[in-house]
Simulated assay, not measured.
Amino acid sequence: MSEEERVHLSRSAPQAYQALAGLSKTAGLLAAEAGIEPRLKEIVLIHASQLNGCSYCVRIHVDRAVAAGLDADTIAQIAAWRDSGVFSERERAALELAESFTFISEAGIPDEVYDHVGGIFSEQEYVALSWLLVSINAFNRVAIAGRYPVPPREEPER
């Protein structure tokens, strides 16, 4: 079945998609109010999208990460964060939380992850990160189910 034959959830039920977009916007506002840095936010959203295999959302959040000041080296190391030295303690904790939320069916949020993350982030920050992760995991599922194509990059003019 080609992409053209797939049900496109955002077009087929725009009211539901707009509700999801509203959740995402609210999660972003919570993150900003909690003091979650744009760099940290995009790192987490990229990683969850990578883990889910959502190339569409990875593209969107890589573009936003670049706009937030992340360089190519840092973005490239997100997938291998455990072995990388470029991430702060906060970023590493958030990446660990992203993995637990993305693979929540395997073990929930394990106590050791919850305790570790809770020792680094305030409750408000934890809540904000959690809603960001709920939102991106939902968007990943919509995009993957619909096989949303990754938009091509425009060639720079020479």
Rank of each mutant, 00 (worst) to 15 (best):
P156G: 02
I36W: 07
I60V: 14
P38N: 02
E96A: 15
E96F: 01
I109F: 11
I120A: 04
P110W: 07
S2E: 12
R64M: 07
V134Q: 04
A98R: 02
C54W: 02
P38V: 01
A48P: 04
G146P: 04
E154N: 10
Y126T: 11
V66K: 14
A13W: 00
G69W: 00
A76P: 03
A145D: 13
R147E: 15
S135W: 06
Y56V: 02
R82F: 06
L23A: 09
E112M: 00
L23I: 08
I104A: 09
S24L: 09
S88V: 07
E154Y: 08
T102S: 05
H47C: 05
V117A: 11
H116F: 08
L133F: 07
G118P: 01
F121W: 05
Y56K: 01
A16V: 13
F121G: 03
L133W: 07
G28F: 01
L51N: 12
V117T: 05
D83F: 08
L70K: 00
V117I: 03
G35C: 06
T74R: 10
V113I: 13
L20Q: 08
Q18G: 00
V150C: 12
P151M: 08
A98K: 03
S49P: 05
A48E: 03
Y126K: 05
V134M: 10
D111N: 13
E33V: 06
V113F: 08
Y17E: 11
C57P: 03
A128D: 01
Y126C: 04
V58Y: 02
T74F: 00
A145I: 11
V150S: 12
L40Y: 09
A93I: 08
E37L: 13
T26P: 00
A72P: 00
A76E: 12
D63M: 10
L70E: 12
I109Y: 10
Y148C: 06
A13S: 10
D111T: 12
E99L: 06
R6T: 11
E125W: 05
S49F: 04
V7Y: 06
E125T: 06
S135F: 06
S88K: 06
A31T: 04
V150H: 12
C57E: 03
L132I: 01
R158S: 13
R147K: 15
H116N: 12
A34Q: 08
H8D: 14
E123H: 13
Q124A: 15
V127I: 15
E112D: 14
L129M: 10
G53L: 10
V66M: 05
V44Y: 00
E42M: 02
A93N: 08
F139A: 11
Q15D: 13
A31K: 03
A93L: 10
V44T: 08
D111F: 07
G53I: 09
Q77A: 15
A143Q: 12
T74P: 00
W81C: 04
Y148M: 14
A31Q: 03
R90E: 15
Y17Q: 12
Y148T: 14
L97E: 04
A65L: 09
L95E: 07
W81S: 02
D71V: 06
H116G: 14
L23V: 11
R39C: 08
A16D: 04
Y148F: 15
L45D: 00
A19S: 13
R59V: 05
W131M: 14
A143L: 08
G69C: 00
L97T: 05
S2M: 07
A68T: 04
F139Y: 14
E112C: 00
K25Q: 13
A48T: 11
G22K: 09
I46V: 14
E123D: 15
